[in-house]
């Protein structure tokens, strides 16, 4: 009996896909975190500048959330363009595209 040569496989076959999936979950987390942070000012002790601080806080959180979202979405977008599988196969996109092209031909 010949000895079989078995290539060691990585435990995570699709490391990148796994990473992307976690990133998309990161978006969900970001959503809830942002919500929580926007509520946070109500827990502050009152002070003279509380009102202004609240406003600045809200806009600050807003901007940070936008930047984080921008980064995550860029990564996701690039991967999607590479036809990586994230969560669900993006065949709805391609399907959609082809029908779009049909329309264009018309």
């Amino acid at each position: 009996m010949e000895p079989r040569i078995v290539k060691p496989k990585p435990i995570y076959l699709e490391r990148r896909s796994y990473r992307l999936r976690r990133l998309s979950e990161g978006l969900l987390f970001l959503q809830f975190l942002t919500f929580a942070l926007w509520i946070l000012p109500f827990l502050w002790q009152s002070s003279d500048t509380r009102g202004l601080n609240t406003i600045l806080w809200i806009f600050g959180v807003w901007m940070i959330a936008i930047v984080v979202s921008l980064v995550i979405n860029r990564i996701l977008h690039v991967s999607d363009n590479d036809h990586a599988e994230i969560g669900n196969p993006p065949d709805s996109l391609t399907q959609n595209k082809s029908s779009e092209q049909d329309n264009a031909e018309l």
């Binding site: 936008i66 979202s69 921008l70 979405n73 860029r74 977008h77 709805s92 996109l93 959609n96 779009e100």
Partner: peptide, 15 residues
Amino acid sequence: SDIKHLYTASWAFPT
């Protein structure tokens, strides 16, 4: 027309 637009809209619309 394309679901990928949301990659942009996701941060551009909040902006």
